[in-house]
Computed example of a mutant assay.
Amino acid sequence: MSETMFRTVSGLHSGYDPDEVDDFFEHARAVYESGPAGALSGRDVRSVAFDLVRRGYQTSAVDAALDRLEAAFVARARADFLAEQGQAAWMARLAEQARTLYTRLTRPDGERFAPAHARKPGYEPADVDALCRRLVAYFDRGAPLTAQEVRSATFRKRNGRAGYAEGSVDAFFDRAVEVLLGAE
Score class of each variant (00 low, 15 high):
residue 8 T to A: 09
residue 10 S to I: 04
residue 11 G to M: 04
residue 12 L to D: 11
residue 13 H to D: 11
residue 16 Y to M: 05
residue 17 D to C: 14
residue 18 P to E: 05
residue 18 P to F: 03
residue 20 E to K: 04
residue 22 D to G: 06
residue 23 D to Y: 02
residue 24 F to W: 09
residue 25 F to S: 04
residue 25 F to H: 05
residue 26 E to P: 00
residue 33 E to N: 13
residue 34 S to W: 13
residue 34 S to V: 08
residue 35 G to Q: 08
residue 36 P to K: 14
residue 38 G to V: 02
residue 41 S to P: 02
residue 42 G to R: 00
residue 43 R to L: 14
residue 44 D to Q: 02
residue 45 V to E: 00
residue 46 R to A: 15
residue 47 S to P: 00
residue 47 S to M: 06
residue 48 V to Y: 02
residue 49 A to R: 15
residue 54 R to G: 06
residue 55 R to P: 01
residue 60 S to Q: 09
residue 62 V to A: 08
residue 63 D to K: 10
residue 63 D to I: 02
residue 64 A to F: 10
residue 64 A to Y: 09
residue 65 A to T: 09
residue 68 R to A: 10
residue 73 F to K: 02
residue 75 A to M: 00
residue 81 F to M: 03
residue 82 L to W: 07
residue 82 L to S: 06
residue 83 A to R: 12
residue 84 E to D: 12
residue 85 Q to K: 15
residue 85 Q to I: 07
residue 86 G to M: 14
residue 87 Q to N: 09
residue 87 Q to G: 07
residue 93 R to T: 15
residue 94 L to A: 08
residue 99 R to G: 09
residue 100 T to I: 03
residue 103 T to Q: 04
residue 104 R to D: 04
residue 104 R to L: 11
residue 105 L to K: 03
residue 105 L to W: 02
residue 106 T to W: 04
residue 108 P to D: 12
residue 110 G to E: 04
residue 111 E to Q: 15
residue 114 A to F: 07
residue 114 A to E: 09
residue 116 A to Y: 05
residue 116 A to C: 05
residue 117 H to C: 10
residue 117 H to E: 14
residue 118 A to M: 12
residue 118 A to N: 08
residue 119 R to F: 13
residue 120 K to G: 06
residue 120 K to S: 15
residue 121 P to E: 08
residue 125 P to R: 10
residue 125 P to N: 04
residue 131 L to D: 05
residue 132 C to Y: 03
residue 133 R to D: 15
residue 136 V to T: 14
residue 137 A to E: 11
residue 138 Y to D: 08
residue 140 D to S: 10
residue 141 R to F: 13
residue 141 R to L: 11
residue 141 R to K: 13
residue 142 G to T: 08
residue 142 G to M: 04
residue 142 G to C: 06
residue 143 A to C: 08
residue 144 P to S: 15
residue 145 L to Q: 04
residue 148 Q to D: 09
residue 148 Q to P: 00
residue 148 Q to H: 01
residue 150 V to G: 00
residue 150 V to D: 01
residue 151 R to G: 01
residue 153 A to L: 04
residue 153 A to R: 03
residue 154 T to Q: 13
residue 155 F to T: 07
residue 155 F to V: 06
residue 158 R to A: 12
residue 160 G to E: 02
residue 162 A to K: 14
residue 168 S to E: 14
residue 171 A to F: 00
residue 171 A to W: 00
residue 171 A to T: 10
residue 171 A to E: 07
residue 173 F to S: 07
residue 176 A to R: 01
residue 178 E to Q: 11
residue 180 L to K: 02
residue 183 A to D: 10
